[in-house]
Amino acid sequence: MKRIVLNRLLGAIVQILAVTILAWLLFFVIARFTGASPARRIAGKLATPAEVAAVARVYGLNLPYWEQYLFFLNHLIHGDFGYSYVQQRPVSTIIWPALRATASLVLGAALIWLSVAALIGTYCGRKLHSIGDVGGRALSIIGMSIPVFWLAPMVAYLFGFEPTQGKLFGFSILPRGTSIFPIGGYVDLGTNPIEWAYHLILPWITLAAGFTAVYIRYFRTLTAEQLTEDYVRTAAAKGASTSRVLTRHVGRNVSPTISVLLGADIATALTGVFFVETVFAIPGLGYVGVSAVENLDYPVITAVVIVTAIVAVIANMLVDLLHAALDPRVRRVAAVSV
């Protein structure tokens, strides 16, 4: 197990380094040929050449490229992402609160999609080709086809905005004056946990919808596959209840595969965050990223790319370790091959 952890950690560090190089190349080398020089962007339009030169010295922008990269990396390790061109403040003061908001959104959504999909998917897997199964599959294929950037405004329109809440084409489809859900905004978990959850309900559901659809299929196929195995018959024969067979026997064999899939999908969910956050006005990484793209605020875009990638890499790593912990075969193979 120790070897797996070390191996995986090393791989993660290499991946993160690859991303920093890529992001740095994108924004500090290519951007230099296409747009204004970073030093000029930081100093502002009215700066004198002497001021621009001074800024370039402070941020190491007058050094050779490889030294600039090391300079950039050194600052990165110390949690310094540079200085926002547009907001005129350190990027790290923008990024960290945003990361908290995004983490609440993604983790909450993941919890929802896993539990809902586990319930529906397992049911479908147990009763293949029943009416419930056909319904579950139809639901899942429709869910897979709905783009999140369309679902988000639709959900917001129906449930989240003041004049349109509960209305469709001008007709009230919910009782008049319903305001079950809050109108936009975001409350930090530390400030008020209840308000936090209340404000995140709609975004959670929106982000989780597409993933629920995909995971229903995963759970359905995996459960159906496991139920044909001999160990299930044995367990049932020795008198284990259905719920015990499903949780202790089938669930135990389904969970390693689901955990691997989850790692990749956390990375995908970080993409969906862009659309959900902009529509529901959650000040997370996606929201910050989109406004940075609109303003060509390169240091912020770089920081968002790097932080998201690091989160994705860490999520993948944790999930791989979880997989090794859940599945003894992975540990054995790794022990033999290393």
């Binding site: 991946q15 970080l270 998201t308 990638a309 994705a312």
Partner: peptide, 9 residues
Amino acid sequence: AFPSLLLAV
């Protein structure tokens, strides 16, 4: 492993 849409943007 990376969120592709982000890098693509």
